[in-house]
Design a protein around this nucleic acid. Structure first.
Lengths: 188, 188
DNA sequence: AATTTAACGTCAGAGTATGACACTAACGCG
DNA sequence: CGCGTTAGTGTCATACTCTGACGTTAAATT
């Protein structure tokens, strides 16, 4: 296998992040990123499907970890407790990547095009969780609902954790799911 | 006020829908849409921010209706029951627009770019519901969670209703929220 | 050393979206 | 009824995104 290209990929990501925080996402042409990384614009598109994609690299890793964690939960556990347990398994991953993803999340928050992509990635995660639940015997009709709701609860927890780092992500998760349970109990 | 342009806007929407179902969204240049509508490509972008935006016109109407419905719910009602009641108020709107939106949803389902935009619109609705809840005294910390979760439950209900028109949307809504309550009760 | 293979460069091109400027049709008013 | 205002439109230019085709280079295999 010839020259790996992994180094180029990393240089592109770093160059992009620097230029994005300096001039903004929309004001940064792909040509500028490629130029700083020492490659051609064409090469950029060989490593990333499009300009937004570079900000969401860890998503596939998170997805694989989640589906694996769901499969590892003891059988007989109900859907939402299963997903909550799986989310707890991803806490180390988040804590490890925290400083790395911090500038990215601010960028996403202030760029509509990146928010859209972020929501799309979240939906992909929810779909993966739906499949993981079905593999455990949850019926195909209700699995999407559980996956979506749990995914949002997880997103709320991580969002709070980003803004208030003092309280651990584990506690944020339990707190969010507790609020979900109490709110749903009021439904009659 | 000079020539209204409302007719042009309608012609653009109809021309776009026809071309989209015939050649697909990605294979339909804006120029083709504008040409069929009898205007210039530049005029298209004066009526719609971008090419995806034409498929999501009713969203603002739905959003206004929802926030109004939330405000109309008797005070003292808990968040999730409030949102469920608000969703029930939008059922006539959905039933009325059903045949109109049917080709659109199929198009969205098979076009990634449109799915992203659809998710973004759903997020906007959730944000609007968050604000509506806060206006009723729900605290800012939990309101986003309730709005997101309710929004997903609503989305699941409408999705089922699209595929199985035999059971009314009202029943789909109650069923989905019932499943949410039961699933959350298992959280302990 | 020759061959294979994946990464890269170059070139061309379609499509999206925006800004600047001029023009025109409709409406209100004197 | 003529006049000016104003929103809608056309025209032109242009930056940017993304893709296809083709040739070249560097690394790994034999």
């Amino acid at each position: 296998m010839p020259r790996s290209g992994e180094a180029v990929r990393r240089r592109l990501q770093q160059a992009a992040l620097e230029l994005f925080v300096e001039h903004g996402f929309d004001q940064t042409p792909v040509e500028a990123i490629a130029s700083r990384a020492g490659v051609t614009e064409r090469t950029f598109y060989r490593h990333f499907g499009d300009k937004r994609e570079m900000l969401f690299d860890g998503e596939t890793e998170l997805r694989d970890l989640l589906v694996q964690a769901v499969a590892a939960v003891p059988h007989g556990t109900k859907p939402l407790p299963t997903l909550r347990a799986a989310f707890h398994e991803t806490v180390p991953l988040f804590e490890r990547n925290r400083p790395l993803t911090e500038p990215g999340v601010r960028l996403i928050a202030e760029t509509p095009a990146l928010q859209e992509r972020s929501l799309a990635k979240r939906a992909l995660l929810a779909n993966a969780l739906t499949d993981a639940l079905q593999a455990r015997g949850v019926d195909a009709r209700t699995a999407p609902l559980y996956a979506q709701v749990a995914m949002d609860t997880f997103a709320v927890a991580t969002h709070r954790w980003m803004q208030e780092p003092s309280v651990p992500l584990h506690d944020q998760l339990d707190q969010a799911f507790r609020e979900l349970r109490l709110a749903a109990a009021a439904l009659k």
